[in-house]
Each structure stands twice: as C-alpha cells, then as structure tokens.
Design a protein around this nucleic acid. Structure first.
Lengths: 333, 333
DNA sequence: CTGTTAGCGCGTTCAT
DNA sequence: ATGAACGCGCTAACAG
C-alpha cells in the first residue's frame, strides 16, 4: 500500500505538498498539483485515516448500540442514524447488545479504544455504568428511546407515556373496562411508562385496576405468547402489547385458542408490526417516529461533537402517532 | 484522556512496560505489574487502538456492505457476521448501499481509508469495479449471496439454482403448467439463476416456456405488486416470487383481486417472509441459510486475514432448504 | 525483568 | 509556492 511518501517521491515533491493537494489546503501551483494527482492515481494511493485520526483526534466514526437489529423498529432507527451520519461524513458501527449488560459494556470498552467520535446508545438496563464510563472519557453520547434515571445525558425518544395514555383512552371510549398490559422488562423505562400511563387513564376514568392484568416480560415473541396465555385467565376484553414483537406473540396465542380480534378481544400495540404476507396492516398502534428518532439523535450527537462548548443536556420527546385500525372494537356484551 | 505515557509516569516505569502489562506480552514482575495496573485504573486509562493499528497494520474492523438492512434476511446474515467477528475480536461496520453503485463505491473508498481489515460485500451490480479496487489494495474480501462474473474472488452463497429447480419441480409435480416467475433485477445473479432454473425444470419436463410469464423487477414490495398485476394477464396457475419482499407484494395484489391461495393460484418464494401478526408461516419457500451464510463468509474472511499465504479462491455453496407449506396445491381444473 | 531508540503515516508550525 | 522538523500514541527491535 502506497504511502504519502511514495507519492511525494514519485511526484518529486515533499510529503506535505501531497497532503496539501489532497486536502485542498494551502497554495499549490497548478502544475505540481497535476504531477501529484497523477502520481497518486498511478500508485493507487489511498490516504490512511488512522494516521490522520491520530493527529486530529477525530475518527469520523459513530457507534450505535441497540438491543436487536432484527426488529424492524430498530433498523428504521438505524437508517435515520446512518443517513444523517453519512451526509456529514461519518460512518456508523452498529452493535447488538441483545439486552445484555455485559455485551453492552464490552462493546463500549472496545469502541472507546477505537476512539469513535460519539455514541448512540439504547441502554439495556437501568444501570448507568456504561454511560458514566463514556462520559468520564468526555466522549459525546446520546441515549435513544429509553430514559435513564439519575444521569445527566442527552436523550431522544418518543412520547411513550402520552401515546400509551391515548391508546388507553381509545379503548376506554370503546367501553373496555378490563384492559390488560403485556410489556417488557421492569428495568426499561418504556415498559414501565406504558403500564403507568394505562393505569393513569384508568384512574382518571375512575375505574379500578386489577394487578392480574399487568404483566412484565420481555420484548420478544415468545414472551408475548406466554404472557397472553397467562393473562387470559384474568379475562381481559382488550390487550395492550408493549411492542410489536409482543403483539406477534399475542396474535399467535389468540389464534390458537380461537379468539377473534376484535370480535372477542381487542388488541393494540406500540410500533408497527413487520410487513408480511397475508395481511394488510390491521392493528391499532402507537407508531413511534423511528426514523426521526435516529435522525434527531444523530443530529444532536454531531452538534455535541462539533461544538466544544457544553450546552445543557437536552431531553427531546418526539410525538407519537396513534393509528386506529380494525383490531379494536367495543367489547362483546 | 490519559496516554500510556501518563500511566508510565504515574507508575514510575517506561511506557513499554505499561504496554507489556496491558497486553500480557513479555516478562513483568508481579509488583510492577500491580503498580501499573492501579495507575491505569486511577487514570481511567483507555488504550488508543488508532496508535496501535498504525504500527500493527490491523484495525480489527470488518466492513459489511449490503443492499438494505431492513430486510430480515440480511439482518440475519449480519447477525452471523457479527457473532463470528466478535468472537474473534473484530468489530463490524454495517453499510446500506440501497442497491446503488455510487453508494457502494463511496463506502468502499471511505472504508479503505479507514484501513478495515476485510470486506464482506453483497454486490449491488454486476460491475466488478469495487471488488477490483479492494483487491488492488490487497485487502481481503468475500462476496456474499450473489456471484460476479469474470472476477476471482471468494464467494459464499446459497444454492440458488438448485433450490429454484426444486421449487419448480414441486409445482410441476402438483400439475402446474403455467408457472410465472417474478424476480429481481437482470444484473443480479440470483434473479437470473432463479429464472433459468425454473425454465430448465420446465424444459426437462418437456413443457413450453411462455416469455410473458417471466418478469424482472426489483427486490421490493411495490415491484412484486406491480409485476403480479401484469403477469396475471398471462394466466399463470402458480407464481414463483424471487424473494420475500416480492412475495409480500404478490400477496397484497392477489388479495385485492380476490384470488385465493392456493385454491385459485399457488405461490412459492425465496427466503422466509418476516414474522408477523395474524398468520402462521404459510408460504412454501426455499429458505436460504442466512445466518450460516454470514457465519461462513466471516470465517473465510478471517482466515484470509490471518493467513498470509494465498490459497486459491473458494466458492462456497450452501444447501437451501425447501419447506412445503399450504400456499401450494394442484391447479384448479 | 526493564529501558532506549526508532518509526508507523500524516498534518501543524515555522522557515525559506 | 514549497519544504524541514516534529509529534500524535503505541510497540517492535534491540540493549542492558
């Protein structure tokens, strides 16, 4: 692999001149410029960003850590991230943490060593360890989708609470009184907020809350399936699924026990279910602006990276759209 | 950010000693080791891989370029890649090319500058340019899923031709004579092979081929939808969808025109359709071993990276599983 | 067992 | 308009 020195020698100039030509910095005469350019081309010269990063303290790499890239919600977020990053000359390293704290910490460690310019983190637990490690190294970080208690950090997320409240209102308006909530882990803010908002809506409507209707599990199909089996014993007339994968599990079980949606039971969920064969969009959902979350977070991160002055931490809350489709109806009498 | 020098000073040793402790290389006495370790911890020292990469010519970063991360087939491949890579101490940069040659070339250029240790490429076109640019820099590369004519390069893919042939045989055995093929772009090997294999199966069964039943489009839902609308005029009794997204488009249109599957028309496709609400797996499919493709390609790539000697290029072809479900039946008389 | 020297490839600083 | 010297942080090669 040719180095800047090789090009310089071939063009009969000093390395610094080559640097000036390639970076369009400083004055270079028209003819030496051409000599350098053709020398570079002949040698298939590819500048070494490692070397320049070492000097400039800029790698132009962002790291994005999320739970699971196989959920289309996250790939859409990732798209937003990638598009903004590329546009501003940054590459993105994407990492799956599988909701495991050790994996997250391992990645953070590796990526800090690689001197990525910033982190986009969907935190796996309520633990603040990873975030603090990053902040201690003064590397900019933006937290996505989930909020973390007791830490000062930029955050971009959908209006989880508000949208859950609206979904609950929709069900209440239809006449539902026994609303089940099947959600993710207790230590993830979105799971908790979804439960709290539904409960609040019930309270505001002066309705009692049956604890047997509230189940915490995982953001996964199997978990949704299992929770549904359990919650049916408490005889809900409607189910709020904590995310799209849980909703899929709900659907699977309901089909097995031959309960029709919405005739026998209503279902709503967060984040759209993957496109698929055999069904038009059918579920009433709270659609978080996935792409926007990625875009917005990345813009904020890049602002942090580019501006030295530390403006106060921001907490951006993006609006969530409620789409009412045909999975909800008045409860059977 | 602390440097190795800072740690050395604090521990009262030379930088190289710190290096030896942290990398477990060479002899270090128990007590200096401890002094160094506690100094490193106190200073929150994070080694700079840029500097060490500059010397070692190893970044431990792989680049993976694919068309679209929102297709679950590719995320599964990417998972295979990531798992193997991490296990061997490598990180992965994932990039979406959107099937666009310029994006691919731009990425290749950026990533070469970053001195990634190797490339995993799902090529967007039949153009060999990107591959040659990479090979000219002596950077190892493995091509995934699609074959490229006239280039010597390692390749890992599913047995496209064989599986398409088997799907066709299945349809023929059911009694279908008018089999439509709706596939991807002409310049992608998988699209072409799927068509060729079906035609071959027809020929082998001594059946005529109606060109009106063969349509090239894009690997996308809208394209599948549009092609279906067009191909129905040629009155097929079965449709072979070139990939999962095309199949979704097929399903959408068939529903609109009230054609039942499999009673009125049979459908088969490649790669499983995303998990979804409301339906059990239903389509008869050729399931490519997505995770395995990623795994295998990465193992091959890492072998290339680690072994200096250049063994001849390999072309790995992985078996494809045919799963017969309920979207296929004998044609209506 | 530990330290010195030197250099990876580039760009900033200061001369010419 | 061009170049020389130096240093970013780390480690291989060679002492001691």
């Amino acid at each position: 692999m040719a180095t800047i020195q090789d090009v310089a020698t071939k063009a009969g100039v000093a390395p610094i001149t080559v640097s000036r030509v390639l970076n369009n910095s400083g004055y270079v005469s028209q003819q030496t410029r051409q000599r350098v350019e053709s020398a570079a081309k002949e040698l298939d010269y590819v500048p070494n960003s490692l070397a320049s990063s070492l000097r400039s303290n800029r790698t132009h790499i962002l790291a994005m850590l999320l739970a699971d890239i196989s959920n289309p919600f996250w790939t859409t977020v990732a798209r937003g991230v990638e598009d903004v990053a590329n546009q501003q000359g940054f590459s993105v390293i994407l990492c799956n943490t599988d909701e495991k704290e050790e994996k997250q910490e391992e990645y953070v460690s590796v990526l800090l060593r690689k001197r990525v310019d910033g982190f986009l983190l969907v935190p796996t637990t309520a633990s603040t360890e990873s975030i603090q490690v990053i902040q201690r190294q003064q590397v900019p970080i933006v937290v996505l989708d989930r909020s973390i208690p007791d830490v000062s950090v930029d955050t971009v997320r959908g209006d989880t609470y508000g949208s859950a409240y609206k979904l609950a209102q929709h069900l209440l308006a239809l006449g539902h009184r026994r609303i089940a909530v099947l959600t993710g882990p207790r230590y993830i803010s979105t799971s908790v907020e979804r439960v709290e908002a539904v409960c609040q809506a019930m309270s505001d409507a002066e309705l009692p809350i049956d604890p047997a209707l509230i189940l915490y599990g995982e953001y996964a199909v199997e978990s949704g399936y299992a929770m549904t089996a359990r919650v049916l014993q408490a005889q809900p007339t409607a189910i709020v699924a904590g995310n799209n994968f849980i909703a899929v599990g709900v659907g699977r079980l309901l089909r097995e026990v031959l309960l029709r949606v919405p005739e026998d039971i209503s279902v709503v969920c967060f984040d759209d279910v993957p496109i698929s064969w055999a069904s038009e969009p059918f579920l009433t959902v709270a659609v978080q602006p996935a792409y926007e979350i990625g875009r917005c977070a990345t813009e904020l991160l890049l602002k942090r990276i580019n501006c030295a002055e530390s403006t106060p931490y921001q907490e951006v809350k993006l609006p969530v759209e409620i789409i009412i489709r045909s999975s909800t109806a008045a409860p059977a009498v």
